[in-house]
């Protein structure tokens, strides 16, 4: 499993291979991949081929895109990164779901932050019904119980219109 790691000493960039659950392999520079804590630990243990059984190719491609961009982060391209992040979190909840699970598994803190905040922002102004629809949550309250819970914080349900749309 562990191939020779002497290349890093000779000045060449050390490469790592990530393998998705679908069996696809991606070769990346170590400096990019170590943003991910899980992989960083494996690298420290001498692995250079890293199998990621919980991450499929589609999700891994997205995550690599994120890591590549964020590896370029400097003082001067903050705005660019910001726009990249904005674009990155667009998409259905289904996609975000896969990404957030993977980010959690891989321990990429920045990505975790970004995704959790973006999902929270989505919930923010939505009506209760819209939240249930978007995130596929079944309502397990009886009408009486729901009324009771509503009454606990009536003020939060009043005032202002809530977004009923499902995007």
């Amino acid at each position: 499993m562990a191939s020779s790691s002497s290349s890093s000493k000779t000045g060449l960039k050390k490469m790592l291979t990530l393998k998705s659950s679908d069996g696809d392999e991606f070769e990346l520079e170590e400096s990019i991949v170590i943003q991910c804590q899980t992989i960083k630990h494996m690298v420290e243990d001498g692995f250079s081929l890293i199998p990621l059984q919980n991450v499929d190719t589609k999700t891994l491609t997205k995550i690599i895109e994120y890591m590549k961009k964020h590896a370029e982060k400097t003082e001067s391209n903050k705005e660019e990164i910001k726009n990249f992040n904005k674009e990155f979190v667009k998409g259905s909840f289904d996609d975000q779901f896969e990404l957030v699970s993977a980010a959690n598994y891989l321990h990429i803190n920045g990505l975790m932050d970004l995704l959790c905040q973006s999902i929270a922002d989505r919930i923010n102004n939505k009506s209760v019904r819209a939240v249930r629809e978007i995130f596929n949550i079944s309502n397990d309250y009886t009408p009486d119980e729901e009324e009771k819970v509503r009454d606990e914080h009536k003020w939060a349900h009043e005032g202002g219109e809530f977004d009923e749309s499902l995007d």
Binding site: V100, A120, I123, N124, D140, A156
Partner: peptide, 18 residues
């Protein structure tokens, strides 16, 4: 983690979700 990022008002509303 996601829920804890909500402002206080949506938190109260979200209690009604399930």
């Amino acid at each position: 983690e996601i829920l804890s990022r909500l402002p206080i008002e949506p938190i109260f509303r979200c209690k009604t979700v399930c």
